[in-house]
Simulated scan of single mutants.
Amino acid sequence: MEKRKINPQKKIDQVICAARKLFVEKGYRGVAIPEIVKESGVSVGAIYLHFGNKEKLAETVYQKTLQQFMDLFLERIGGATSIQDKLRAFAELVFEITEEDSEMMEYMLSVRKEIRSNMLFPLCSSAAFLEVQRIIGDGIASGEIKPGNHLIAAVSYTGVILRAVELRMQGVLEQPLQDLSDELVDNAWTSIAAQ
Rank of each mutant, 00 (worst) to 15 (best):
F51T: 09
G52S: 07
G52Q: 07
G52M: 04
K56E: 13
K56S: 11
L57Q: 08
A58T: 05
A58R: 04
T60H: 08
T60R: 14
V61L: 06
Y62H: 12
Y62Q: 11
Q63L: 14
K64D: 14
T65N: 11
L66E: 15
L66D: 14
Q67R: 14
Q67Y: 05
M70N: 15
L72H: 13
L72F: 03
L72V: 04
E75T: 09
E75M: 03
E75H: 06
R76N: 13
R76S: 11
G78A: 09
G78E: 12
T81F: 00
T81G: 06
S82P: 01
S82F: 00
K86F: 01
K86R: 13
R88A: 13
R88D: 13
F90N: 14
E92Y: 02
E92T: 07
E92S: 04
L93E: 13
F95Q: 09
E96P: 00
T98N: 06
T98Y: 03
E99K: 04
E99Y: 01
D101S: 08
D101I: 00
S102P: 06
M105W: 01
M105P: 05
E106K: 10
E106Y: 01
Y107I: 03
S110T: 11
V111P: 05
R112H: 07
K113P: 00
I115F: 01
R116V: 01
N118L: 04
M119H: 11
L123H: 05
S125R: 10
A127W: 02
A128G: 12
A128P: 07
F129W: 12
F129Y: 14
L130V: 10
E131D: 10
R134V: 02
R134M: 04
R134Q: 09
R134Y: 03
G139M: 03
G139V: 03
A141Q: 11
A141F: 00
A141C: 02
S142Q: 05
E144N: 07
K146H: 10
P147C: 03
N149C: 10
H150Y: 09
I152Q: 14
I152C: 10
A154C: 10
A154R: 05
S156H: 10
Y157F: 15
T158S: 15
V160S: 11
I161Q: 07
I161V: 15
